[in-house]
Amino acid sequence: MSGQSRESFPCREAVVFAVRGEIDIANAARLCAGLLQATDRPECGCLVVDLSRVGFIDLSGVRALMECYRILTREGRHMVLAEPSSPAARILDALDMGQTFEIYPIVETALVHTGRQRYEEGPFTGVSGAD
């Protein structure tokens, strides 16, 4: 899994959206809505989804990420995944999602092509509040 093999383009502003907890059928739609809401400003050209604190993700979670990716791509925006936890990396690898997403090993490498960054804490998963 690597985002380095793809051509990148400079983004004006990137939003880093940290996802934590479990992503499953019970909250996948809410996650997608939260991701799209985080990018709801014209200057935001890139969404970096930080998956480092994801304890579990199922197929519905991957579908939610893909739906957000499709929507943002249609709008001319960029979405990448960064720092997937072991459970997230396993399912992304098993589904060969590196063919669809740019996946970076750490958040900082995903931000190299951006001008400005903004950090969003994503309480839109199975765990809300503190870890």
Results as ranks from 00 to 15, higher is better:
residue 77 R to V: 15
residue 83 E to R: 15
residue 65 L to C: 13
residue 113 H to Y: 06
residue 109 T to R: 11
residue 17 F to E: 09
residue 61 G to N: 06
residue 80 V to H: 00
residue 65 L to V: 15
residue 63 R to Y: 09
residue 54 V to D: 01
residue 33 A to D: 10
residue 20 R to W: 09
residue 98 G to Y: 02
residue 87 P to K: 00
residue 21 G to H: 05
residue 54 V to G: 04
residue 9 F to G: 09
residue 35 L to F: 06
residue 80 V to K: 00
residue 106 I to Q: 12
residue 83 E to C: 08
residue 107 V to W: 00
residue 102 E to T: 01
residue 46 C to S: 13
residue 35 L to D: 14
residue 47 L to Q: 06
residue 16 V to M: 06
residue 56 F to G: 09
residue 78 H to G: 04
residue 8 S to N: 08
residue 14 A to L: 01
residue 61 G to R: 02
residue 40 D to Y: 01
residue 11 C to P: 08
residue 80 V to L: 14
residue 45 G to N: 00
residue 16 V to R: 01
residue 22 E to G: 07
residue 91 I to T: 14
residue 47 L to K: 00
residue 27 N to P: 10
residue 105 P to Q: 03
residue 51 L to S: 05
residue 8 S to F: 12
residue 56 F to V: 02
residue 16 V to C: 13
residue 114 T to V: 14
residue 80 V to I: 06
residue 73 T to I: 05
residue 118 R to V: 11
residue 63 R to F: 07
residue 33 A to C: 12
residue 77 R to P: 03
residue 25 I to K: 04
residue 79 M to V: 08
residue 33 A to S: 13
residue 109 T to I: 11
residue 106 I to M: 05
residue 9 F to A: 12
residue 72 L to F: 03
residue 51 L to A: 04
residue 102 E to M: 04
residue 99 Q to N: 14
residue 108 E to L: 12
residue 115 G to V: 06
residue 116 R to V: 04
residue 18 A to S: 12
residue 37 Q to D: 12
residue 52 S to G: 06
residue 102 E to W: 02
residue 103 I to V: 05
residue 48 V to R: 00
residue 13 E to S: 10
residue 64 A to L: 08
residue 114 T to Y: 07
residue 31 L to W: 14
residue 104 Y to E: 10
residue 91 I to D: 08
residue 80 V to F: 01
residue 108 E to P: 12
residue 30 R to V: 07
residue 32 C to F: 07
residue 20 R to A: 12
residue 61 G to W: 09
residue 6 R to Q: 04
residue 97 M to T: 08
residue 35 L to N: 08
residue 62 V to G: 07
residue 31 L to V: 09
residue 22 E to C: 09
residue 15 V to I: 15
residue 10 P to Q: 11
residue 62 V to T: 05
